[in-house]
């Protein structure tokens, strides 16, 4: 330690503090500006194409007639199916791993693998989906095959989020329940899950948002480029928002880039609605916890 530090310790610390604060503000502003520029660009480009007709028309080779109906319906279907498949599976796995499974080598092995799976590139899930669901199980290029592939993709995320949420429930709650003679099942269903619900929900919604925006696995399993009908069941062929947007954006005509921008706005609104629903549900769920 040299003497100068002892002389003016407050000064130096305050300077560091100001410097760090400045950095933090600068970086936040930077990312915000990028976001605003991106969203602003998309809104300016796409706004003129945004109308009720855009939502209720099928794709077309003429930009002014092109609509997003089949892609929107495809994405709705996909999200519904993914939700039904991945949420029960994910939460059940998390409960088993946290509450029932004895901690040991096997459990650690599973844990590491799930964490690894969460980091696997999405195209790999597309290849698995193509080999297993499309070809082996003969699901063809259907919504169900797409939903199963997407579910595989987001399951690790849901499991990890749900496990964290369950682990965060204080041990006393469980012990209290056991002391009163509750079984493990009763403890989990009446106490642990309600307490963990907000955290689980956040994980689920984040995972669903990711599934909504993913393109690579869907292209891999062969979701289609031109679809001019609304799927009527889980075995129907389909297209989805990101694929439709990709198709428009890659067309040479400039008008189609504006149509693509309009598609992006729809996708963003969809995401925003999903996330707001999450915030609201989370708020409601956390209000109900009373110990």
């Amino acid at each position: 330690m040299n003497n100068s530090q002892w002389k003016n310790p407050g000064d130096r610390r305050a300077r560091k503090e100001r410097l760090f604060k400045g950095c933090a503000i600068g970086l936040t502003t930077f990312s915000l500006v990028i976001l605003v520029v991106l969203v602003g660009h998309v809104v300016v480009a796409g706004f003129s194409y945004l109308s009720l007709d855009f939502l209720t028309s099928f794709p077309s080779r003429f930009a002014h007639k092109a609509g997003i109906k089949s892609a929107l319906a495809g994405s709705f279907w996909l999200m519904g199916l993914v939700f039904l498949i991945s949420v029960p599976l994910g939460i059940a796995s998390a409960i088993y791993l946290e509450e029932y499974n004895r901690k040991g080598k096997l459990s650690r092995f599973i844990e590491i693998n799930i964490a690894n799976l969460a980091g696997v590139p999405s195209i790999v899930y597309g290849i698995i989906g193509l080999a297993v669901f499309v070809r082996f199980f003969h699901l063809q290029r259907s919504l169900l095959a797409g939903a199963l592939t997407m579910s595989l993709l987001i399951l690790p995320v849901i499991i990890i989020a749900a496990r964290e949420a369950i682990r965060a429930v204080p041990k006393n709650i469980r012990l209290g329940a056991y002391a009163l003679g509750a079984t493990r099942w009763q403890t989990v269903i009446h106490h642990v899950l309600p307490a963990a619900a907000p955290g689980i929900l956040t994980g689920v919604i984040l995972a669903m948002s990711r599934a909504l925006g993913e393109t690579a696995p869907l292209i891999m399993i062969g979701a289609l480029t031109y679809v001019a009908f609304v799927p009527a069941g889980p075995m129907d062929p389909f297209t989805a928002l990101p694929i439709q947007i990709f198709n428009w954006a890659s067309r040479p005509q400039a008008e189609f880039h504006e149509v693509a921008a309009a598609g992006i706005i729809v996708l963003l609104i969809f995401l925003l609605v999903l996330n707001s629903a999450a915030v609201w549900l989370r708020h409601r769920a956390s209000k109900k916890i009373r110990w």
């Binding site: 319906a73 709705f76 279907w77 999200m79 519904g80 939700f83 609304v230 009527a232 629903a277």
Partner: peptide, 18 residues
């Protein structure tokens, strides 16, 4: 149940379009 009905609603709206 909220979650389920949400999913159900999504599916119904998707069907209704046709």
């Amino acid at each position: 149940i909220t979650g389920l009905s949400l999913a159900g609603f999504l599916i119904l709206t998707a069907c209704g379009n046709s």
